[in-house]
Simulated scan of single mutants.
Amino acid sequence: MSKSEKKVASYAIIGFGKIGQAIAKAFARNGIKVSVATTRDPESFASDAAAIGPEIIPKTLAEAVKADIVFLAVRFESHTDVAKALPNWQGKTIVDVTNAYGVPIEQMGGQPSARFVAQAFNGGKLVKGFNHLGAAILGEDPAVHGGRRVVFLAGDDDGAVAEIAALAENLGFAPVKLGGLSEGGLLVQAHGNTWGKLIFQDLVKFN
C-alpha cells in the first residue's frame, strides 16, 4: 500500500453533551469528519450537530462504534453500555474522556479509573485524554497566546498513545504524554472525591 493509498482513520464521539460537543468543535474547526452518537435516535441531536458544522455526522451508536478511534464522552457510569455495543474492540483505540468524580474507589476495585474503564472494552486499546479541561475551555480554539493548549495523554500501549497524540496535533492541541494508566493516568483522573493534580490545569505550550 503506497502512502497515497494509506487508510485514513475514521473517528467517532460517543456522547454529545457539553464535552462531546466541545470535542466535535475541534474536529469541525479543522475540517475533519467525525461521527457522533448517543443512546438516542440521531435525529434528536441532528440540529445540534449541524450547528457545529457539516463535518459532524449524527449516527446510531451501532454505526458510530465502527470507527477506528472512538472518543468516550459519556458519563462514567455509562461506559459499560457503550462497551456492550461491540462484542470485541480489537483494532480500535478508545479515548477515555470520562471523569469518575464521586464514584466510590471500592467500586473500581481500587484501580485507576481509566484502567477500570479499559477492562470493559475487550480487545481495544485505551488512552486517557481530553478530560482535564472544562467543556467551555476545551471547545475554544486551542491556539492561544502564540502557543497551543495542552492536552494530557496516558496509556499502556505506546502505539495507541502516539496515534492519539498525532490526532491531537491535527486538532490544533499540544499533546503531552504522561506515561501509563497506572502512573500518568492518576494525574488526570478523579478518584473518589479527589481530583488528579493536572485536572483543570489550563496550560499552553510554546514551540
Rank of each mutant, 00 (worst) to 15 (best):
A49S: 11
W89D: 00
L138R: 11
L153D: 12
A168E: 05
V204N: 08
F27Q: 09
F200Y: 15
P42A: 04
D141L: 12
K197P: 13
K205D: 08
K3N: 14
A67G: 06
F121Q: 05
I164S: 07
L203D: 10
G129F: 11
A49D: 03
K3V: 13
I23A: 05
I94L: 15
V103N: 06
T93E: 07
I52V: 09
H145G: 11
V36G: 00
S113K: 08
I13L: 07
D156M: 07
G147H: 04
T80A: 14
K205M: 15
I69T: 14
D68E: 12
K3H: 15
N99T: 06
N193P: 02
A51R: 09
L203W: 14
F27L: 10
P87Q: 12
A28W: 08
A174F: 05
K59H: 07
R75L: 11
Y11L: 12
K6M: 12
P112N: 11
K177R: 15
E55P: 01
K177A: 11
F206M: 06
G159R: 04
E43V: 06
I56F: 00
K205I: 10
I23H: 02
G17T: 06
N170V: 05
A64G: 03
V82L: 00
D96P: 06
G196H: 11
L138F: 06
T194E: 15
Q189R: 12
L171W: 08
D41K: 01
G110R: 10
R115C: 03
G172K: 07
I13E: 04
K7W: 03
A73K: 01
S10L: 03
V161A: 04
D68F: 00
T93Y: 02
P54E: 14
V97C: 15
E169S: 09
A9S: 14
H132A: 12
M1A: 11
D157A: 05
S182L: 12
A73M: 04
K18C: 04
A37L: 08
V144K: 14
Q119D: 15
A162M: 08
D81C: 00
A136R: 10
E106F: 03
H145I: 02
K205A: 15
L133F: 09
S4C: 08
H145E: 15
Q189C: 13
F173K: 07
